[in-house]
Design a protein around this nucleic acid. Structure first.
Lengths: 354, 354
DNA sequence: CTGAAAGCGCTTACAG
DNA sequence: CTGAAAGCGCTTACAG
């Protein structure tokens, strides 16, 4: 390591072709590396003029602390993991984008970890991932966010996490809660306002909390308007296109078929469209349909699908902000974030009742 | 640190609550940590019985080498970056999945880095990402893969990469090439076989190589069948739904409109559908349409869209395998991978010519 | 407010 | 084939 300390005007402050290190900064700023470390980590115990001098050298050398070295010393990496089993590419990509929005400039990176919630090796797999990488934190959208075994594992590994769900399953600093209830309720008000009285509901799998929350929002709102939801109008799908086709046929073959159908996601709504057309109905004249998710497809199908939209990207951003709060000296419990409220996007698939 | 070396039968071979380290393994296996390191890195210079003994201890302790520590010593992380500007969520998610398929079990993780190719800070941004993380390697799908400035930057940073594109832009070990030419040609043969003679082509932006390759495949194939492609039937879109609508109107308002239209992606195909319907045409009776990409939407729209499908997930997997080859002792130049051939998925949007 | 020493868990370079 | 020493670039724990 030897060699006398170099003066600031040394012609080669840093070995050519190599990145500047904390030692280079310390040497040139004429402080110890610990002081540079304090500046990097925004410690308050640095005299203002020292801080400025160090920062000037940092800028001059283009010094960027090595995340691997910091990670090794901190015993925690600068990687945020997103663990998900959501099958919708649009959902996944939008959420990744939102997380990255919040991570920008923080020095953290996003590592993606899709998985199958039904896999027998799920916990083992997640344990390996989180433990090996010593993740800074984990973000989980539904339905991963609803798996208490995974949560217990993360607690055991002492890894911070934020869950995104339609129900407050955890403490505020570990939750981004979406108000799916009101989204579904608005769909119900919309159909009621259009004059429909025979309105059917196609739920998703009750394994998912969203199906319960959205279903309740819709049925509560219908009840509020005095519109009945008889059992034969209240059926289950599987959140898939194919199950939507099936549900469509089931409802439309009823002696008294509904004049409007609300499905708890868009894939099923488009399946219902297909079923209606298979049966010779003309859309939207013969049947009004409303979905949930507002996939890009919703604006492309014919007739353009009226749907409920959740701000997925914002949700990802908010989740990452909660994860970052402690690093920024913010108490995450105090972090005020607006409640996430979906919006009804009115298009052409629902018309006034005949 | 002190303390005499512990015998193998020490009741506490590893401090409770802490992960085993290379030191624990070395102590218990009664070898130096360097030998353990050799075993981890599959060095041939370890006697067979020593290797077995070390491996047994590794297994017993559940030892996993810390990627941060290895990365620091190696001056290279165990992170693969995927840098992309592709706007299609389905494409992105499928490719991520394919890359992860190949990475599984390798100890590498996938860090995602979407970006805007037109951003003025693109190079600076990518430099920061790649340099800071000392990436193991980078995977780039189109159109990032076509940006020679980015490639030059990666070479400067001495970072391995694999490009995915419809043209061999680089040496074999750094390329996964898709045969988009044949995919588009098959679409042409299909429409020709259906008896169409007035066939139009809607290209994408020529900024993208895929537009050039696909366009050439289609026009070559039409020429081969002796079907003319007059200038008014050969137009440009922008790979968007909206541009598809526009192109549809333009073609369908021709004095002699085409009976079939091939668009170089599905978004434009679905835009053409919308235009056709806006003009009162009945589909697929009055107009045959074929797209390219086979988005999930293709199987959902009405009529179900005939489209050309590229095995995106396989492409991602192959790209990652090329990146991993050296680590596995395989010469990437020798790595035989089948040429990637798209498949025409025939559905209901193209019918025999009247 | 600042610093010298020891350490995080690995690998490289050099010996033997 | 194996190992002791030094180092990767940072931070913690302890002094002062």
């Amino acid at each position: 390591m030897g060699g006398a300390a170099l003066a600031h005007d040394d012609p080669r402050p840093v070995k050519p072709g190599k990145r500047a290190t904390i030692n280079d900064v310390a040497r040139i700023a004429e402080v110890s590396k610990k002081t540079v470390s304090r500046v990097i980590n925004q410690s308050p115990f640095v005299r203002e003029d020292t801080r400025e001098r160090v920062n000037a050298v940092i800028k001059e050398l283009g010094f960027i602390p090595d995340p691997q070295a910091r990670g090794l010393a901190f015993r925690r990496s600068f990687l945020v993991g997103m663990i998900y089993d959501n099958p919708s590419p649009t959902y996944v990509v939008n959420m990744q984008q939102g997380v990255l929005d919040a991570l920008k400039g923080s020095g953290l990176e996003l590592v993606v970890h899709p998985c199958q919630r039904t896999s027998p090796t799920l916990l083992e797999d997640i344990r390996g991932f989180v433990e090996r990488q010593r993740l800074f934190g984990v973000i989980m959208p539904p339905s991963m966010s609803e798996d208490e075994n995974v949560i217990a594992l993360l607690k055991e590994l002492d890894t911070p996490y934020v869950r995104i769900a339609s129900v407050a399953l955890d403490e505020p600093q570990a939750m981004v809660v979406t108000n799916d209830w009101i989204g579904a309720a608005e769909a119900a008000y919309h159909l009621a306002d259009l004059g429909h009285r025979r309105i059917a509901l196609v739920r998703g799998l009750d394994l998912f909390r969203s199906s319960q929350t959205r279903g309740k929002g819709f049925s509560d709102a219908l009840a509020e308007r005095g519109i009945p939801l008889p059992p034969e109008y209240d059926i289950y799908g599987a959140y898939t296109f194919e199950s939507g086709i099936e549900a469509g046929h089931q409802l439309l073959s009823l002696p008294e078929p509904p004049t409007a159908i609300f499905t708890l996601n868009d894939d099923m709504a488009i399946g219902v469209m297909q079923a209606a057309r298979d049966r010779g109905l003309e859309l939207p004249r013969d049947l009004s349909i409303v979905g949930f998710d507002d996939l890009p497809m919703a604006a492309r199908v014919w007739p353009n699908l009226t749907s409920v939209r959740l701000p997925i990207r914002d949700m990802g951003r908010m989740a990452a902000e909660k994860l970052l709060a402690p690093m920024r000296g913010i108490d995450p419990a105090q972090l005020k974030q607006p409640t996430i409220r979906p919006a009804l996007i009115v298009r052409k698939s629902a018309l006034p009742a005949a």
